[in-house]
Design a protein around this nucleic acid. Structure first.
Lengths: 154, 154
DNA sequence: TCGAATTAGTCAGGGCACTGAGTATTTCAG
DNA sequence: CTGAAATACTCAGTGCCCTGACTAATTCGA
């Protein structure tokens, strides 16, 4: 009766999109290493020695989730985790040789997968696709941190 | 060094989009009922008496996940689950009165949230946003089921 | 009609994602 | 210099999401 059409609900669409991606990743990239794990590895290849919190910020994972992902990557021997001698709170992370090799391999496959995933869109549509999603995500993310200065006492 | 730019990776973008949505949902719609739960409830308001598998298909949840979601909704007293007397394998689902009330309430809030979520886009951009995501998702979904007839021995 | 597929749902197991509470370490104000 | 605040991380709890293996019920072909 009063049911709603979910195809105009961005949240529903976002979920479906991620599921579709998950499927393709599993088939074309890796069944062992997940997409978030690759994102973390990628951040560390870019800047070895980052601490956990910063990596999480870079790839968009909260403190708890990043901890789990790092545990798994470390268990697989893809990264090393050592306490910062300068600041005993921090854990510094860097990819192992094995981690670097894995990253190189998966980077190639990921590129291939992205092509397949985006194949239904023209080049211009692809840029638009990126831009629109980015704008919506950034805006919502922005609501999180209500502007640096101060919440304005109203 | 050989690190990759994740802002051009649809999977990464999809994940961020979903996180952004999760955030807004929690703030503006409900902290109890999740978006997938609402989707299930919505499908049952539309067609009471559906079985589990069909609902899952409608909202895009696999057999295991739909089972969990339904357990939670049922525990909250938002839907009833009875075995089909015609076919003992099926479980038939229908919203309770409480479920209907909850659906009505959340439908209103969801509409409001969608407006906020999509506010950064113009009306035309919003249609484009929907269409592009839909096309990509559908195409990937299509790879799953390699065309009805037969996989073509090539 | 009876046994082999098919179909609906359950269960165990692994991974992502968030919150709230707790611990250890560092920083900073008085 | 010391106690309060801030910071990095951990842990417990909840929920989504998938796969593969299993059970129960139905259907369908020989």
């Amino acid at each position: 009766m009063a049911a709603v059409d979910l195809t105009t609900h961005p949240g529903h669409l976002a979920r479906r999109l991620q599921q579709a991606h998950y499927l393709l990743w599993n088939a074309m990239v890796s069944e062992e290493i997940t997409s978030p794990q690759f994102a973390v590895l990628n951040a560390l290849v870019d800047q070895p020695g980052l601490d956990q919190r910063t990596v999480g910020e870079r790839v968009g994972l909260d403190r708890s989730t990043i901890a789990e992902v790092i545990t798994r990557l470390s268990r697989r021997g893809l990264l090393d985790k050592v306490r910062d001698p300068q600041d005993g709170r921090r854990a510094l992370l860097r990819p192992t040789d094995e981690g670097l090799r894995t990253h190189r391999k998966l980077a190639v496959r990921t590129a291939r997968m992205n092509q397949v995933f985006l194949a239904p869109l023209s080049a211009e549509e692809q840029s638009l696709f990126f831009a629109l999603i980015q704008r919506v995500s950034d805006a919502a993310e922005g609501l999180r941190h209500p502007a640096e200065p101060v919440p304005a006492p109203r």
